[in-house]
């Protein structure tokens, strides 16, 4: 199994890689209310996130391999970027209340329903904690990518990134 950390070994970014990423907001910002959390740490030629943001909070610029830079002051956590990112690498975190709210893209069948109690998983797909589905947004603009919001205890705000695929143990 993979011993080394980092995206090229584990398949997801390490804490260290995320901490250096310009797409990751500060802890203080997360506590203030919903904000985008961009887990894009490799310089790939891609910039739909830049155009997706109606507030101009995400910048890629030239060349398009620049990492997306989040302006956490401009970002309102609307989540318009979540479904636009072809890499499904953008999340919205809200740490302003007692429980953490995590929004993420979801493209499996069937969709969870509002109110469902679901197994919430970390970046390795490990079920960590049960969560409640707060919201499932589908929009023609999202082109079949749903944006799901779950509520989990606050300590998992930087751990939970998805839910178990429906029907899988």
């Amino acid at each position: 199994m993979i011993q080394k950390t980092g995206v090229i070994y584990q398949g997801y970014p390490s804490e260290q890689e995320l901490s250096k990423s310009p797409g990751v907001p500060s802890d203080e910002r997360i506590k203030r209310g919903p904000v985008a959390f961009i887990e894009c740490v490799q310089e790939i030629p891609c910039n739909p996130c830049e155009e997706a943001c109606p507030y101009g909070a995400i910048a890629v610029g030239q060349p398009i391999t620049n990492l997306p830079r989040l302006d956490e002051k401009k970002c309102v956590g609307c989540g318009a970027c979540i479904a636009k990112c072809p890499g499904l690498a953008i999340f919205v975190l809200d740490g302003s209340e007692q429980k953490a709210k995590i929004s993420f893209p979801h493209e499996y069948y069937p969709l969870p329903q509002k109110g469902d109690v679901v197994d919430c998983v970390d970046r390795e797909g490990k079920a960590i904690v049960k969560g409640i589905v707060l919201k499932v947004v589908k929009s023609p603009k999202y082109d079949a990518t749903a944006v799901v919001t779950v509520e989990v205890p606050m300590e998992y705000i930087k751990i939970i990134r998805s839910i178990k695929r429906p029907g899988r143990s």
């Binding site: 493209e107 499996y108 069937p110 969709l111 079949a144 749903a146």
Partner: peptide
């Protein structure tokens, strides 16, 4: 039969 992207 069902597919999240392609539909039913």
């Amino acid at each position: 039969v069902h597919h999240p992207i392609l539909g039913d």
